[in-house]
Design a protein around this nucleic acid. Structure first.
Length: 431
RNA sequence: GUGGGCGUAGCCUAGCGGUUAAGGCGCCAGGUUGUGGCCCUGGAGAUCGAGGGUUCGAAUCCCUCCGUCCACCCCA
């Protein structure tokens, strides 16, 4: 039945689905640069690659993210497979990795386990610049060690990554949001403070009051600012261990020479975070300012049915990074030039051209065979457009002599050599 | 989910109620016999985002939808 009925909403021609994008050959140098840099930095810090499925049993995400969060309420791609299984496309990286951590008994290996991933995430929200329904996140997780040293390490990885990308002027914002010991009590105080003021506060804040009180502190409305100013501060209500953890982290960041500003309004969109939260943003103001963010999530593994297990990590959006790299016209390295273009004219020459290109490739060099039936002029133009270093010309006379005319496109010099010698002549350094 | 801007060939843009929708880039072909980057000539390529309406007549006006961008929300 597929395709039998014409849906009036179906276009005559298809475009990529809303909020999803193709990565084209011209984009790829940026992607390669970013991915290579991420992998290099991770290896250097002793993190190992992990890849988890693009979809999970829905509960993996629904149970961990938190009931009132936007991610769960309106952004998860939920679907049933043909067997009636409820599945969800990955909206964020951490929960799936923690599921794998549990499933494969990583808790019985030496802790912490250091993992990283580069993978697509899916969220059904309204696309705009730097915000997509499918986006790619590079993330790391350090699991099984609750010490603030690990928090500092994770932040150090991200800072090093940005530095190696050559991103200028990235700033770090840091905060602590307490833990199950102190946060609930604080939230009660916050609500008690806001309750009598609700009629003076913006409509969004009345929603936040119900669903996510911590976000009240982050409101940008003019008229809410004064109220925020008088609100109780979380930093005054931390429990001893949270206080010590945060102070220790600050000491480690200082030792690493990592600059930061404390932002008491900084909160996360996922409920599983505890204690440390942080966010990196570019100096340039924009709506999609968050480049990368993360924090500690000591309760997450328990939500997935595992033992109490501390963890800390970050996620950073590759599309946004690339947006910034483009804006800064960063040097991402040029693609390797084409070593040889094999032009051929006349019957029989195509076979010789294929064989020559093959031999050159076997020697580890790149070669492209010219389009059959095109004039030599057309093939030369193509070679030029491809920025080929050399063109080998195979026509009647060359064919008869078992030779090729090898033309250097830089200095326009030409010589006839045996087809068998082409590869060695092309080798870097031998010309 | 809310508010706003924009949608003309692969890309950029002109046209903004009246005969076969114009230009640039790119693409293809030619500029003498088998040779590139510059230049010249020619060609292909657009149901003017889609559907509906107003009108003698719409790319041009109106409505709906879709897409995209911006702000909010949220987040990477």
């Amino acid at each position: 039945m597929l395709g039998a009925m014409a849906d009036p909403k179906e276009p005559r021609r298809y475009g990529a689905p809303r909020g999803a994008h193709d990565v084209l050959p011209g984009d790829w140098p940026y992607w390669r640069f970013v991915r290579d840099t991420a992998e290099r930095v991770c290896e250097r810090f002793g993190y190992s690659r992990v890849d988890t499925p693009i979809f999970e049993t829905a509960g993996v995400y629904l149970r961990t993210a938190g009931e009132g969060t936007d991610i769960v309420e309106k952004e998860v791609y939920l679907f049933e497979d043909r067997g009636g299984e409820r599945l969800a496309l990955r909206p964020e990286g951490t929960a799936g990795v923690m599921r794998a951590y549990l499933e494969h008994g990583m808790s019985s290996q030496p802790q912490p386990i250091r993992l990283y991933y580069i993978a697509p995430n899916f969220r059904y929200d309204r696309p705009q610049a730097g915000r997509y329904r499918q986006h790619t996140q590079f993330g790391i997780e350090a699991v099984g060690d609750g010490d603030a040293v690990v928090d500092a390490e994770v932040i150090d990885v991200l800072r090093t990554f940005y530095r190696e990308l050559g991103l200028r002027d990235v700033t770090l914002k840091l905060n602590t949001i307490g833990d199950p010991v102190c946060r609930p009590a604080y939230i009660e105080r916050l609500r008690a403070y806001y309750e009598p003021l609700l009629d003076r506060v913006c409509a969004d804040d009345r929603m936040r009051f119900e669903k996510n009180p911590l976000r009240l502190l982050d409101c940008k409305e003019e008229r809410c600012q004064e109220i925020i100013g008088g609100a109780p501060r979380l930093s005054d209500h931390l429990c001893g261990p949270c206080r010590e953890h945060f102070d220790a982290l600050r000491g480690y960041l200082d030792a690493l020479d990592i600059g930061y500003t404390i932002d008491e309004r900084l909160v996360r969109g996922l409920d599983y975070y505890t204690r440390t939260v942080f966010e990196f943003e570019p100096l340039e103001e924009g709506s999609q300012s968050s480049l990368g963010a993360g924090g500690r999530y000591d309760g997450l593994v328990e939500l997935l049915g595992g033992p109490p297990t501390p963890g800390v990590g970050f996620g950073t959006g590759l599309e946004r990074l690339i947006l910034n790299l483009r804006r800064e016209e960063a040097d991402v390295g040029a693609p390797a030039p084409l070593a040889l273009y094999v032009a051929h004219v006349g019957p029989g020459a195509a076979k010789a051209a294929l064989r020559l290109a093959d031999a050159v490739r076997s020697a580890g060099l790149s070669a492209v065979v010219g389009s059959a039936g095109r004039s030599l002029k057309a093939q030369m133009r193509q070679a030029d457009a491809r920025a080929a270093r050399f063109v080998a010309i195979i026509g009647e006379s060359e064919l008869a002599a078992g030779q090729v005319t090898l033309r250097d496109l830089r200095d326009r010099s030409e010589r006839k050599i045996a087809a068998a010698d082409v590869a060695s002549v092309l080798r870097p350094g031998s010309t």
